[in-house]
Simulated assay, not measured.
Amino acid sequence: MALELTLALTALALLFEAAFGYPAALYRAIGHPVGWIGRLIALLERWLNREEAAPGERRLAGVATLLVILAASFGPGFLLQSWLLSLPFGLFGVAILASSLLAQRSLHLHVARVAQGLDRSLDEGRAAVSQIVGRDPHVLDEAGVARAAIESLAENFSDGIVAPALWMAVGGLGGAAAYKAVNTADSMIGHRNRRYLEFGWASARFDDLVNLPAARLAGALIVAAAVMVPGASPANAARAIRRDARRHRSPNAGWPEAAMAGALGLALAGPRHYGGQLSVDGYMGEGGRRDCTSADIRRALKLYRVADTLLVALAVAGAAAFTLAAW
C-alpha cells in the first residue's frame, strides 16, 4: 500500500474515531478487536506456558506466541484492507475498521470521568481512576488520584493513539492491528513475575521496540501543543524530557509523562503501589507540584486535545504531500 494511501487511511481513521469513537451497540454485538486478540493470547498462554518447562523452553514458547499473534493480526488486516480497497470508496471502509484500533475519544472520556468523580468525592474519583490504571486506588489521596489520571493520559496518548496511528501510516490496517496485538500481549503477559518472566519476555521487549518512535513523537507533540495552550510551558516540557524521561522505569513512557509534567508544572510518577507492592520510579517534572487536583486533570486534557489535533494535522498534511508528489 502506497504511503499516500496509508497516510490518508490514518488521517481518516483518526478523524472518524475522534468524532464517533467505537459504537457501544457494535461493542455489545461483536466485542472489540483488542478483546479478540486478548482471547487468542490467553488461549496460547494456557497451551504453551507450562510451569514445569525449563526457562529456555518457556522463553521459546513466548517467542512462538508472539509470532502467532503477529501473523493472526497482520494477515487478516492486510487481506481485509486489500479486498475493501478493490471496492468503490473502499478506503472509507478500511478507515472505519482502522478507527477501532485508536482510542482518542475513549481516553478523553475515561480521564474526564476521573475529574468529574473527584469533584463529587474522593471515593468516586478512586472508582473512576481504577478503570484506567493498574495501581491500588484505595491508597491514593485526592492528589494521587489526579496524578494517576494525568500519567495515564500521557502514557496512553503514546501507546493508545500515536503508536497505532504511526504503525497504521507505515503498514496500513495490518500494521496497526499487529501493533495492537503486541501492546495487548505486553499488558497481559509482559510482567516480571514468576509466571511470565520468561514466557512474556519476547512480547515485553518487542513492545518496547515498537513503542520507541511513538513515545518520542508523543513527547514532541505535547511540547508543541504547550506552545498553543495558555499557562503551559513548552520550554519546561522539553527540559523535563531531557532531564527526566530516562529516569522512568519504562524506556518509553517517560517521554510523554515528562513532557506533560513539565508543560503543566507538575511532578508525576515517583513511588507508586501496584498489587500491594511499592514500585520506586523517578519523578517526571522534578520540582513541580505534587498537589494535583481535578482542575489539573482538565488542564492536562486541554493539552492532550491540542496534541491530538496536531497528530491529525500531521497525518492530513503527510497524505496531501505524498499524494501531490505521486501525481
Rank of each mutant, 00 (worst) to 15 (best):
G90P: 01
L43E: 15
R299S: 14
L118H: 06
R192C: 06
L85Y: 02
S158M: 04
V280A: 15
G62S: 03
L310I: 06
S86R: 12
G282Q: 10
P234T: 02
S203K: 05
A215S: 07
A258H: 03
L87S: 06
G262R: 09
L85Q: 05
S106D: 11
R105P: 11
P137E: 13
P251C: 05
I222D: 01
L5T: 15
W327G: 14
L15S: 14
I241T: 10
L109D: 13
G56Q: 09
A181L: 00
R243L: 07
A54K: 10
A163P: 08
R120D: 08
G287Q: 06
D141E: 15
R272N: 15
L311R: 03
G285Y: 00
A177V: 00
F199R: 07
A25L: 15
H273R: 15
Q81T: 05
L66Q: 04
I297R: 00
F20L: 12
A204R: 11
A29E: 08
I132S: 12
S121H: 08
A103F: 02
D119R: 15
P88S: 00
G275W: 01
E257Q: 12
A112F: 09
V63E: 07
L5Y: 12
A315P: 00
A181T: 03
A261N: 04
A245L: 11
L314C: 12
R272K: 14
S203D: 03
T293V: 11
R194C: 05
A8Y: 04
V280M: 11
R216P: 09
L97T: 08
V68Y: 00
R305V: 09
P33A: 13
W327C: 13
V223A: 04
G190E: 10
T65H: 14
G62Y: 02
R242W: 12
D141M: 11
C292G: 01
A18Q: 14
G200I: 10
L278N: 08
A319N: 02
D296T: 11
Y283A: 14
L310N: 00
T323S: 15
P164T: 12
M168C: 07
H32A: 08
S294N: 08
L102S: 08
A320C: 12
P256D: 11
A315I: 02
H110G: 10
Y179R: 04
S250F: 06
R195W: 03
A154E: 08
I96V: 14
L5M: 11
G35K: 13
E286F: 08
Q116L: 15
G77V: 10
E52S: 10
L303V: 05
I241A: 04
L84V: 00
S130Y: 11
V133Y: 06
E45L: 12
L107H: 02
H110M: 11
L14I: 01
F74W: 15
P213H: 13
Q277L: 14
A224D: 09
R298F: 13
Y274W: 05
S294P: 06
F322C: 14
Y304T: 01
I132Q: 12
A218N: 04
A127D: 13
A226S: 03
A295G: 10
E17N: 03
E4F: 14
M188E: 10
G62R: 13
A163W: 08
A319G: 03
L3A: 14
A2I: 13
P251S: 09
G90Y: 04
E4Y: 15
A8N: 11
W83R: 13
W201V: 01
H32K: 02
A300N: 01
